[in-house]
Write a protein that binds this DNA or RNA. Structure first.
Lengths: 190, 190
DNA sequence: GTCTATAAAAAGATAGAC
DNA sequence: GTCTATCTTTTTATAGAC
């Protein structure tokens, strides 16, 4: 059990690692970068993550999973009105993506050489995300198969929109993607 | 003029570099990797690309630009029927993306630390791509503003579909994205 | 134009003191 | 739990022979 410091502190450290992996990718984030970002020496990082970067990526994806579970999936399955759930979810995405200007940790790491455990968690996060949107689409009146496709395609559009912004600075696709989700609450079926 | 070998050979070398940058990203592709992939010693690579990886990435993106220009943009603006143009373009994407199983060089490098010249070329390639799809949408009967959005959003979906496949192995979004383009030829306006 | 050899820098990882 | 110091390996880059 190499963890024995305040969970709050640990979470804050993982949060800094999160930003580094998100912004620089797995290969692009060096130990020196991660050390500086956390204000911890390299040895301290190894104390908390004995298996090095690989374990740090796992922790970061675990935090991402917690976020998606609580701020996206749980909200989608809550008992609030469809409109209210969608608004909260769009807001959550806007926060984590800075209105479409940030990179996405999931998209970034999905093409990188992360370990098998991290990759498994990555898949779980994506599934939680898609399941949430599928549920919203279902509640808007779509039949199951179509709702599932909607969920997959909406995830797809978000990921692509992040790349679009990175490549050209154009945030239009991101905005339209969020607007499309909001329309689910207004149309009998989209 | 550090280039003085058969243009065909050079093109083949850049093609191998293309695959390495596409599959491993800019940071992830090491000189050792690139050397092995091209069957050229590191010194030989520096002979052809004196500024190292940065210049290699520029060459690779230049080749990508040529491809998008000739196999996508020129085709979109040709005098063939809309249906025929769309089929050729979908086929071209299927070849370069292996039916949605390959990574995309553009998406990959757009988040990496490439140099300013390479980034400029990257933007140009994306613009050629979007312009091509916009032109097809226009020809299908869409008004200009909507057609441009269609082009941007279609690029977005393709990029996202590549990430979806990388993250989960699901090629559905890629297939649906290609199918959506094909539908442009069948509907009076989509 | 390509190679072997080598240098210089950076990255990942560990030892051991405090 | 954190640090400084150190070590190993990898990566980038160059020199110089062929």
């Amino acid at each position: 059990m190499p963890a024995a410091l305040d969970p709050k502190e640990k979470q804050a450290i993982v949060g800094r690692l999160f930003e580094m992996f998100r912004d620089h990718g797995y290969e692009g984030a060096t130990l020196a970068d991660l050390s500086k970002a956390t204000s911890l020496g390299k040895s301290s990082l190894y104390h908390h993550f004995p298996r090095g970067k690989e374990q740090m990526a796992e922790a970061v994806l675990g935090q991402g999973k917690n976020f998606v579970k609580s701020a996206i999936n749980d909200v989608a399955h809550s008992s609030e009105s469809l409109k209210s759930r969608i608004r909260k979810i769009v807001d959550a995405f806007d926060v984590i993506y800075g209105g479409g200007q940030n990179y996405c940790l999931l998209g970034r790491l999905s093409c990188d050489g992360i370990g098998d455990d991290a990759r498994g968690t990555l898949r779980e996060v994506v599934e939680l995300w898609i399941d949430a949107i599928t549920h919203l689409a279902r509640d808007s009146g779509m039949p199951q198969v179509r709702a599932r496709q909607y969920g997959e395609d909406w995830f797809t559009r978000v990921q692509g929109a992040i790349i679009m912004h990175a490549a050209t600075g154009n945030a239009g696709p991101y905005k339209r993607t969020m607007a499309a989700l909001a329309r689910l609450a207004k149309e009998p079926s989209a």
